[in-house]
Amino acid sequence: MEQLSQPWPWWAAGTIIGLIVPALLILGNKHFGISANLRHACAACLPANIKFFKYDWKKEIWNFFFVGGIIAGAFIASTLLANPEPVQVAPELAAELKGYGITDYSGMVPAQLFSWESLLSWRGFIMLVAGGFLVGFGSRYAGGCTSGHAIMGLSDLQWPSLIATIFFMVGGFIMANLILPHILTL
């Protein structure tokens, strides 16, 4: 239990993620991918006669169970297996974030950036609402997200997935280093 509640090393998590690929394939020929759920939600709730959302989403219902499990697992890990210590971050990052007034390291997301109150500030609104929009729009436009392209697609040696993964990183580097510092000072 002591071991489990400490933060896990990268190789432990990487091993689990890597083994999810064959586990889903062998359990039912399911391909690892998460952003498709966002599309199934559109197809289920608001297809609005858009061809892209007019398909039998019930065939993909397994994926809703999969993300339901993620929520439950995250809840268990944050309660029963919770690590009482704040997350340890690189000193350079901590110094930079301090300049933006981010000093709370207790949660998975910084409470000073992501809270109901911060939604009312430009900084919080942009990061929560615009950020989410870009994730949803971009992952579908790219045909998958980190799980579908970077893990499943690369595992299957699909070169379009390699291109997508490279541009995920390009976008991330641009945002984190060039744009985000301006948003964080808002």
């Binding site: 995250a74 809840f75 944050s78 950020g131 790219a142 541009f167 390009v170 976008g171």
Partner: peptide
Amino acid sequence: GGTIFGLGWAMTGACPGPLFAQIGS
């Protein structure tokens, strides 16, 4: 799309899977 996704990923600190996990946390 990949670039747009990356921009959002660095802002929210989450791709679609972690969004669900952050809510669960």
